[in-house]
């Protein structure tokens, strides 16, 4: 066991972790921040995406001690302190970009990072950016639409409206 300290959603946290403790386990089990999800064991599904030092990272693929001193944002840290959802979160609700909600934290974290890096992505760029995030409910239609809408693009012409 070794002590690890980091900043999560603006709060300084620390804990004693085994060397093989994954970052996602540290978040979910030690900090009891259960918004970040685990949907697979091969780093494929993306339900566990968080931001580490400004990068979107699959927290199932990083050891807790590797995050020593890091600044981490999780899904719990995306909305404003007063509860107002971010534009990505709000677009997901407005465009029905989620159903069961299990992949949603990872989708929001990936989409948020995408729009930071590419503020007006094309449909193809959005779909490509989601290659590491699997959703089983939505057929991706409304996720892609929500992300395009969050980028400020007109989605009214997209099929099925």
């Amino acid at each position: 066991m070794a002590k690890v300290s980091m900043t999560v959603n603006g709060r300084a946290v620390s804990g004693d972790v085994a060397g093989n403790r994954l970052l996602v386990e540290f978040l979910r089990e030690d900090l009891r921040m259960t918004g970040t999800h685990v949907g697979c064991d091969t780093s494929q599904c993306g339900a566990c995406v968080v931001h580490v030092n400004g990068k979107a990272v699959k927290s199932c693929t990083m050891l807790a001690h590797e995050a020593e001193g890091a600044t981490i944002t999780t899904i719990e840290g995306i909305a404003s302190p007063d509860g107002t959802m971010s534009r990505v979160q709000q677009a997901f609700q407005d465009h029905h970009g989620l159903q069961c909600g299990f992949c949603t934290p990872g989708m929001v974290m990936t989409a948020t990072k995408l729009l930071e890096q590419n503020p007006t992505p094309t449909e193809a760029e959005v779909r490509h950016a989601l290659e590491g995030n699997i959703c089983r409910c939505t057929g991706y239609h409304n996720i892609v639409k929500a992300i395009l809408a969050a980028s400020g693009q007109d989605v009214s012409k997209i099929a099925a409206e």
Binding site: M33, T34, G35, T36, T74, I75, E76, I78, A79, G83, M85, Q89, F92, Q93, L98, C100, G101, T104, P105, V108
Partner: peptide, 8 residues
């Protein structure tokens, strides 16, 4: 959606 989108 609000609880699913905010990790709650």
């Amino acid at each position: 959606d609000v609880r699913f989108l905010t990790g709650a």
